[in-house]
Nucleic acid binder design. Sequence first.
DNA 1: CTCCTTTCGATAGCTAAGCTATCTAAATAT
DNA 2: ATATTTAGATAGCTTAGCTATCGAAAGGAG
Lengths: 158, 158
Amino acid sequence: MTRRKPERIADLLHSASIHLLRRAAEEDAESGLGSARLSALSVLVFRGPLTMGRLAAAEGVRSPTMTRTVQGLEEARLARRRPDVRDRRATVVEVTPEGERLLGEARARRIERIGSRLAELPREELELVGSAAEVVERLFGTPGRPWRPLPRDTAQPG
Amino acid sequence: MTRRKPERIADLLHSASIHLLRRAAEEDAESGLGSARLSALSVLVFRGPLTMGRLAAAEGVRSPTMTRTVQGLEEARLARRRPDVRDRRATVVEVTPEGERLLGEARARRIERIGSRLAELPREELELVGSAAEVVERLFGTPGRPWRPLPRDTAQPG
DNA sequence: CTCCTTTCGATAGCTAAGCTATCTAAATAT
DNA sequence: ATATTTAGATAGCTTAGCTATCGAAAGGAG
């Protein structure tokens, strides 16, 4: 061990992440939502009500895209829009109880899928993975925003 | 340490993977290709020429979707289609030299982005991450297909 | 050998989700 | 008071997913 080149480690980590998320995402079909809507919903659940602009920024997406994504969530009764009292140009989006429930279920399916695989590991390896995940989260996670979802995409070259 | 619940580890790992890939994917715009095309191209590079059907299966996508994705790659001169000699119903897709070059560059950008962050880590943590990535790859990677790209999506609930 | 079924890929036509350009209304700055 | 900036919506484009359907080729049953 301990002889891998850093570039090789980056490669491994990249590949492992892709495979893990691919498996996890297989559960998402259950929710009946597309990935953009599911992802936006998760931001609303974890960060609370947001203006359209902040929500779009959180998702790394332009404002017209978010307008339509939220329209979809609204029609499905998973989110609501209301005017911002402070700034009457702005619109605040918030999740509904149904939205919260749906997201909770979708999220649980993903975590369960991953967890059931991890359960195959001996305790020592499980701890190894946990510690490494903390390190990676520290490096790549957004400070102050502990969830930071992928906006949608994750094609990968290689 | 060593006191995390398995469910919590799954959660951490999920989150870390999302953040890592989100950062890596920011480089993809450089390629000028959408994620579906980039991903299909990577399959062709890593697995060699494939029939439309096999390529679609590898990407977890239906055949009409792959027909159009490959049309795009063909127009960009990054891939070619030719009839299969063995089975004249089938079409074989293969990458062109330009396609190979473009994918190599896109991939290098991703790995470099990840690697430059990993370089901040002390040697010990770097090795920790490398070992964990191997474990995760073993659990979630597809046997015999060491690359297994995400087809496109990666919304994440939570 | 002839027919029936299956399989491969393409086409048509839908939806979701991304973009830029442009518009209105509101807030802000001169 | 006017001009600029900002927030969001709308129009209209592209990319990418889907199902349904079709023709051509392959393969099996008689």
